[in-house]
Design a protein around this nucleic acid. Structure first.
Length: 552
RNA sequence: UGGCUGAUGGUGUAAUGGUAACACAGAGGUUUUUGGUGCCUUUAUUCCAGGUUCGAGCCCUGGUCGGCCAACCA
């Protein structure tokens, strides 16, 4: 993937992998995993993790398991499983195996039994308040509770009966017996199993007890013989526990490494917050084009290539970061510029009548589909007596250096003729309703022998063949650069103008658009058909991102 | 006030004891039948204080500042 001749420097995880390869750790095998919890849709932060995990495997001849971390039946659902699989595939990655932590519930249960047998786990009947009180604080060590020294036999009996559903939810837990005085709070006898009677999306009502993250994740890694288990920084303090279980259980020594999660300006990146936006209807759903979700970005017209390029550019590190969303947009534009079909669409139509054009005459114009791609060919559009231009492309009293249309001025109609503005028609109250222009006869695009030099080129649509379309314009979802870091509720910083809907007139070639096709509405931005459209009668386009605009 | 972890332009990322570089963003120019693209130029960086060294962004010591940890979430 790196440019030839010049070697890309390795990030710290690649260095670890290369060192392991050199030392023949795990016989030179590299197996990573991507472990989402199916309780929400994937976002751009997950894309970073996906690119890391799958990219590592790809570069070092290994594989990546997709493993759903489904240990909490209360929040998880198959809808999320399906969306996650779809998003990973769309990003262009293939997993070695599709696994579920719930596949391992029997083994995990056996692991718990072993710990109890070894005197390393016990059943605690305390309430969560009592437990919290006995746990101490970071500066005050915890104290043992009354159940800590139960016999192995009693623990075994109680735990088996928990599993059978003999005790009510929340009445007892299984805890690892480690060190109540540890400076790491997670080592102060962490809960490893709790009672829940909820229906699990895969195991149904088979289980009445479910393992906690710390007693499922690392063990799942071990069972699959994952060599490099990569997660985000907030799990650093879990690593001590992760290693403790591997040692006490005597299972495959997977190793955990942590990197900084992605943060991006003007959005939020936690599933909890995104779920709130969905549930409280601030957005239309997880795939709302304003969401930082993979599905939202896809619907908005972002390409997987742009997202993958972005993830590669931002790198992997351990320091906290807040990445400028304009970097993502740069990669989106870069990709779209080379692949999108150029078309014309007018958002705020201003009627132009070509006075010296014969009434019924329609003339074909041949326009390039994509100047960046010689293979893309041309298409035909028709020029006629009555057209629409963008209202903003005409100014009655323009500032200096304005080189679009003005009274008495000339402008090139993209792909067609040069016109001159002869007359401005207004209502009584001064509103401009129509322009009367004349075209320059021998100035047609491609066969221009007029000798005129025209600085301005504007887009247009022919009144008789233009098609109406709804266009959804998006702005950032939040007004604050880092809403999650602001004081108070992040929702107070929602940008209430993040969606603007306009009616546009577009060229008829758009009638056959699909949501796979990427378009550039010339001089405006990149657009994609929304899946809600039912062509040909309700065309709906999403604005992916605007063109850069150096005119102000 | 415990433990863990981190600190390089506005934002990211490199430089692995030897000239602080690349990208984005900003500014300016040029080309252009998109005020797009391309091309060129430009602004701006090692948290602080000591130490080791011929030489420190990098190593050592001490500070400062940020993040994470006291869910029957992951």
């Amino acid at each position: 993937m790196s440019e030839e001749g010049k070697e890309r420097s390795l990030n710290f995880i690649e260095e670890i992998v290369e060192r392991d390869l050199e030392n023949n750790t795990h016989s030179g095998r590299v197996l990573t995993r991507f472990p989402p919890e199916p309780n929400g849709y994937l976002h751009i932060g997950h894309a970073k993790s996906i690119c890391l995990n799958f990219g590592l495997a790809r570069n070092y001849g290994g594989g990546t398991n997709l493993r759903f971390d489904d240990t909490n039946p209360v929040t998880e659902d198959t809808e999320y499983v399906d969306s996650i699989k779809n998003d990973v595939k769309w990003l262009g990655f293939e997993w070695e195996n599709e696994f579920y932590a719930s596949d391992y519930f029997d083994e995990l249960y056996a692991f718990a039994l072993k710990l109890i047998g070894d005197g390393l786990a016990y059943v605690d009947d305390s309430t969560s308040e009592e437990m919290a009180a006995l746990k101490g604080t970071p500066t005050i060590p915890g104290r043992p509770g009354p159940y800590r020294d139960r016999s192995v036999a009693e623990n075994l009996d109680l735990f088996e009966r928990m599993a059978k559903g003999e005790f009510p939810e929340g009445s007892r837990v299984l805890r690892a017996k480690i060190d109540l005085a540890s400076s790491n709070m997670l080592m102060r006898d962490p809960i490893i199993y709790r009672i829940k009677f909820a229906e699990h999306h895969r195991t149904g009502d088979k289980w009445k007890i479910y393992p906690m993250y710390d007693f499922a994740h690392g063990q799942s890694d071990s069972i699959e013989e994952i060599t490099h288990s990569i997660c985000t920084l907030e799990f650093v303090s879990h690593r001590e526990l992760y290693d403790w279980f591997i040692e006490k259980l005597g299972i495959f020594p997977s190793r955990q490494y942590e990197f900084a999660r992605l943060n991006m300006t003007y959005t939020v990146m936690s599933k909890r917050k995104l779920l709130q936006l969905v549930n409280e209807k601030y957005v239309a759903g997880w795939d709302d084009p304003r969401m930082p979700t993979i599905s939202g970005m896809r619907r908005r017209g972002y390409t997987s290539r742009a997202i993958v390029d972005f993830c590669e550019r931002i790198g992997i590190q351990k320091r906290d970061n807040l990445i400028d969303v304009s970097l993502l947009e740069f990669f989106v534009r870069e990709d779209l510029n080379r692949i999108s079909t150029r078309v014309m669409a007018v958002f705020e139509p201003l009627k132009v009548v070509i006075t010296n054009w014969p009434d019924e005459k329609s003339e074909v114009c041949r326009v390039e589909n994509n100047p960046e791609d010689p293979e893309s060919g041309h298409r035909e559009i028709y020029f006629g007596k009555e057209i629409y231009i963008e209202a903003g492309d005409f100014m009655e009293e323009p500032p200096a250096k304005y080189f679009r249309l003005k009274p008495g001025g000339v402008v090139r109609l993209k792909g067609a003729y040069i016109i001159q503005c002869d007359e401005v028609i207004k209502t009584d109250d001064g509103r401009i309703t129509e322009l009367r222009c004349s075209y320059i006869e021998n100035s047609k695009s491609g066969e221009d022998v007029s000798g005129m030099k025209v600085k301005g080129v504007i887009h247009w649509v022919n009144a008789v063949e233009a098609v109406e379309a709804e266009v959804r314009l998006y702005d950032r979802l939040f007004k604050a650069e880092n809403p999650a870091a602001e004081e108070g509720d992040f929702k107070d910083f929602i940008n209430e103008n993040s969606l603007t809907v306009v009616k546009a007139l577009v060229e008829p070639s758009l009638l056959k658009a699909t949501s796979e096709d990427k378009y550039q509405f010339m001089r405006n931005g990149y657009f994609v058909l929304d899946p809600e459209s039912s062509s040909p009668h309700t065309l709906i386009f999403n604005k992916t991102v605007g063109l850069k605009d150096s005119w102000k």
